[in-house]
Design a protein around this nucleic acid. Sequence first.
DNA 1: TCCTCAATAT
DNA 2: AATATTGAGG
Length: 266
Amino acid sequence: MGSEAGGYDFDFLGGGGEYEGRVAEWEAGLPGCDELTPLSQPLVPPGLAAAFRIPPEPGRTLLDVHRASSATVSRLRSSPGSGSSPSSGPNAHATGGGGSFPSFSSKGDGNSAESAGEKTAAKRARLVWTPQLHKRFVDVVAHLGIKHAVPKSIMQLMNVDGLSRENVASHLQKYRLYVARMQGSASSDRPSPSDDHIFASTPVPREPVPAAPMPPAVYHHPAPMTMGGITGGGHSGYYQHQQHAVYNGYGGGGGHSYPHYHHGDR
DNA sequence: TCCTCAATAT
DNA sequence: AATATTGAGG
């Protein structure tokens, strides 16, 4: 259809392994998670905000931070020289940002498009909304406020590589239905037992003790960046970067999977 | 151009 | 079932 955007800067593939060195260098200088300001929490206490009628405008702040983060990352990965698609706008490189990678399940037999970061109308594998990814989504939506929580903004603030506006729009649509259903005829906060999903009142099952790093999400790429130091500690702030797949967010722990590529099997 | 929603497809 | 896609309407 549209020959528009499709601006997925998956230059990792083109660049090759040259990134690893750079990325490692970059990682070395990054602050730990604990040192980052947890943006998932309001900077102004709710009570205070309410008392002074502070209008909700966290988006600005988050965007600002995101931009800085994005700029840093894009600077680091602007080596392969080519790229430089003029794109359009200051935040155009957000797509190649240093966020986390969403989980996708691919169906190919290990051939064609999926293996490469297709830029030409190639179909993307289905996104898997892991609890971590969903939490990020919910966090962003919560901070944007009902008025500004639109697909584009959410997508930008989530800063997840490869996440499209459509992905977010689709998820948002469903999420809204869930929320509406819940506040609609719910005398008590008691979701249906069947709402055992990410949408459940307890979106991301709190792990009692974060023994293992909590990767936000995964993408099915040849892993241009593999890092291992950042642990998802208790709080999930925004700038987390990809680690390894395994999404095992469920209490009790035990099951951990891989960035599983679903090899078209069912 | 983007957003939202319902219906539909995979 | 979960996610994607489309299409209408704003």
